[in-house]
Design a protein around this nucleic acid. Structure first.
Lengths: 145, 145
DNA sequence: ATGTTTGTTGACAAACTCACTTAACTATTA
DNA sequence: TAATAGTTAAGTGAGTTTGTCAACAAACAT
């Protein structure tokens, strides 16, 4: 039930991009890395994955950097974590976005599988929170009053 | 956000012990292993951990095996998963049972840390479900009507 | 007592994942 | 063209997961 460093860094990086969104300015990887204490080369991989997934755009050369493509209110933590960490579901057989049937479970496929019932509830709770938690909400907690 | 095989096996093994609880009979590891398709030597480690944590008792020799120490209604999935997988919280800084402060987060310690806010909500949801989900509830889904 | 059944313990290891690092490459702009 | 900045593939060391193996200890039936 753990969030990887990759996702944590990803969220923190997107926080920086969210704060810069209104100015619609590009933020460079080394600025993000410095402000959020993220190893820069690892950060690149993360930003690249988010770019490939269609959340970011980038510009090369001087004054280049990364920028959000969509408003922060339209990007959810659920999307981000699925991109960087895979499905939210604790177990494959209850995932909606990446279902995989159990191979060894004696109740496999049956709707009466107790593991599926319990973990399905957990999945719904997690997805219910993270899919309704936008980057805008996320950043709101970060601004100093 | 994933449940390990260890925890999954553990829950499935406890399912067998729950079904045998009323008869207060001992169930042998190879019966559990066979019925639930769990590698027997791995299962041992799991049962041993659950025993050390005070959920099970065991008896050696003929007609030996494992048995629940407490009624299934008093054991929660949350307890089991914490024993086998560690804290439920997605990140150390929001764990109630195993708190650990972030080292690299620029908001570390501050109540306004956005990661902490979001993941705290998730933790509460997961714990709210799993700490109120007993083995009895769990097994109820398994009995054929 | 003896042998069989069963659980106990600890060491080990293959496979995989995580968290990065290295290094070469490509594109953009001043 | 020189400097800046992002792109990509590959590699790496540490740690975790998922087991396996072998020797051992206790309980029981006979």
């Amino acid at each position: 039930m753990k969030l990887s460093k990759k996702s944590e860094y990803g969220l923190r990086a997107l926080l920086e991009l969210t704060l810069a969104y209104e100015a619609s300015s590009f933020v460079q990887r080394h600025d993000i890395a410095a402000r959020q204490h993220i190893p820069i080369e690892f950060l690149e991989q993360i930003l690249l994955a988010l770019k490939r997934a269609g959340l970011l755009s980038s510009r090369r050369g001087m004054n280049g950097g990364y920028r959000l493509i969509k408003p922060p209110s339209l990007i959810t933590l659920g999307q981000v974590i699925r991109i960087l960490d895979g499905p939210l579901a604790p177990i494959g057989c209850v995932s909606r976005t990446a279902y995989q049937k159990c191979d060894d479970c004696p109740y496999a496929g049956q709707p009466s599988c107790p593991v599926q019932q319990a973990m399905g509830t957990v999945r719904d709770a997690i997805a219910g929170i993270l899919d309704n938690y936008s980057l805008a909400d996320f950043a709101a907690g970060a601004r100093k009053p």
